[in-house]
């Protein structure tokens, strides 16, 4: 079946099977491999994208449901090669990543948090990221990054 949706601000048309998952569509068909798959069961959060501005886990979402929707992936965060999103900068500045595998999901989830709660407390960040696993960092610097990124997003807006 043919679907048309907006992906990182551009219109996209794709031919998908009824069983195709959004994560597979992005990675295999559209070559956007920044969205990672770490568990296929919506447990780990590596696959989080934005659907109409809210974070969702793309590994259990059917591609067919994207018709007419707006999707943003980690590749669509930076305005250009030299203009990273404030949250991307914050993760880099605060050593909020090690192996980088969970990072796209962490970024997408964190940006959604800040869009809903511009000045989250540390506890709110930890609770919000409960669905995003990281095995490398112990989360401390991720939390620090999100707090710093939230401040940068407030300053930018």
């Amino acid at each position: 079946m043919k679907i048309t949706f907006t992906l990182n601000d551009r219109p996209v048309t794709a031919d998908v099977a009824p069983s195709t998952l959004v994560s597979d569509l992005l990675r295999d068909t559209l070559d956007l491999t920044g969205t990672h798959v770490g568990c296929e069961t919506s447990q780990c959060g590596a696959c989080v994208i934005h659907l109409n501005g809210s974070s969702v886990k793309s590994c259990t979402l059917l591609a067919a449901s994207l018709e007419g929707q707006e999707v943003r992936t980690v590749e669509g965060l930076a305005k250009g090669p030299n203009e990273l999103h404030p949250m991307q900068v914050a993760f880099r500045e605060n050593h909020g990543l090690q192996c980088g595998f969970c990072t796209p999901g962490m970024l997408m989830a964190s940006i959604d948090l800040v869009s809903k709660n511009p000045d989250p407390t540390e506890e709110e960040v930890r609770e919000w990221l409960e669905g995003n696993m990281c095995r490398c960092t112990g989360y401390q610097n991720i939390v620090k990054s999100v707090i710093a990124g939230a401040q940068a997003m407030r300053n930018a807006s």
Partner: peptide, 15 residues
């Protein structure tokens, strides 16, 4: 290494 990871441009085997 962070620039490629925060922009989704890492190159993992599954990619």
């Amino acid at each position: 290494e962070d620039l490629r990871f925060v922009t989704g441009r890492g190159n993992y085997v599954a990619d």
